[in-house]
């Protein structure tokens, strides 16, 4: 970082003083029906190509499943979309008009991209209620937080989400005291309450009971349409139950794409991934 660059950033008031930030004006342009464009994406760690020239398009309102063996690049892809990892080459666009590369995680989140981690991460020391309050779509700046009030409207919204994720009775419990499955649900609730345009869901049903899995499937399917959902999952049964379009990743690139049947019958897929299942 050059000195000039540093000063430039110091003078950039919307970086530093978020309360001075103008209201977010940019709307996502989805006139081509595509919400997420990923083109020629590559990233390597110490010579290992985690993502290799990957091209992927997610339509607005669809529910897409990403499957692939360990190390196929699914989580890395999510890291790149949400701004955690920076790719070596390639482009990632949200709608036609918003370039996601170079933006911070917080900016991307505020654009309406929510993410659920592989391992459930919630704010363990705080109540379920506070977890949801924090995740709510709102001004996220310092002054806004200092003067933030819970309006009746907001409380209604939290109650609503609590009901959806079935944690109404646990609202006053510390999140850390929840069971693994409940944490998964709370994290999904945190996604919901943020009202995102695009949800990236990493292994949502890991550690859930069959019944919980079923409810998750229902929830995710019901979300699609209004929102766009990308699910990464290992549980083939689960994928079969929700998937309309499935994309198979292999060694950092797209191996096949289509409906579950198409993919299952794809000889390449059978060879590298589903082979041992049949």
């Amino acid at each position: 970082m050059s000195v000039r660059g540093a000063f430039g950033e110091l003078a950039n008031r919307d970086q530093l003083w978020p309360f001075l930030m103008p209201a977010r004006g940019a709307r996502v342009d989805v006139s081509k029906q595509v919400l997420l464009y990923i083109e020629d994406l590559s990233v390597s760690f110490d010579g290992f190509k985690a993502i290799n020239n990957l091209n992927l398009y997610i339509n607005d309102g669809e529910l897409r499943c990403l499957i692939g063996a360990n190390g196929a690049g699914k989580t890395t892809l999510m890291d790149i979309i949400t701004g955690k990892t920076h790719p070596d080459t390639g482009a990632v666009y949200f709608g036609q008009n918003i370039d996601l590369l170079g933006r911070s995680e917080a900016e991307i989140a505020e654009l309406g991209i929510g993410r659920k981690f592989q391992k459930p991460t919630v704010f363990e020391a705080q109540t379920v209620y506070a977890n949801l309050e924090l995740s709510m779509r709102a001004e996220k700046g310092i002054m806004a937080s200092l003067g933030s009030r819970l309006t009746g409207e907001k409380r209604d919204r939290i109650d609503q989400v609590l009901a959806t994720i079935g944690l109404s009775d646990e609202r006053a419990l510390a999140a850390g005291a929840l069971s693994h499955g409940q944490k998964q649900w709370l994290e999904i609730g945190m996604l919901l309450i943020a009202d995102p345009r695009l949800l990236l869901v990493d292994e949502p049903v890991a550690g859930m009971t069959a019944q919980e899995t079923e409810r998750t499937a229902e929830l995710l399917t019901s979300l699609a349409g209004e929102r766009t959902v990308v699910v990464v999952e290992h549980d083939m049964e689960f994928v079969r139950s929700i998937a309309r379009t499935v994309t198979v990743l292999h060694q950092g690139s797209v191996l096949a794409e289509g409906t579950m049947e198409q993919v299952q019958n794809d000889p390449k897929v059978i060879e590298v991934y589903l082979g041992d299942e049949h």
Binding site: P18, T82, K84, S104, E105, A106, A109, E110, G114, R115, F117, T121, V122, F123, E124, A125, Q126, L134, S135, K140, G141, M190, A194
Partner: peptide, 17 residues
């Protein structure tokens, strides 16, 4: 507190931690 316990999560929720 959220930053203390899960800073990455707080960022993904949209806070400039």
């Amino acid at each position: 507190l959220a930053v203390r316990d899960a800073e990455a999560r707080a960022r993904f929720v949209g806070y400039r931690t």
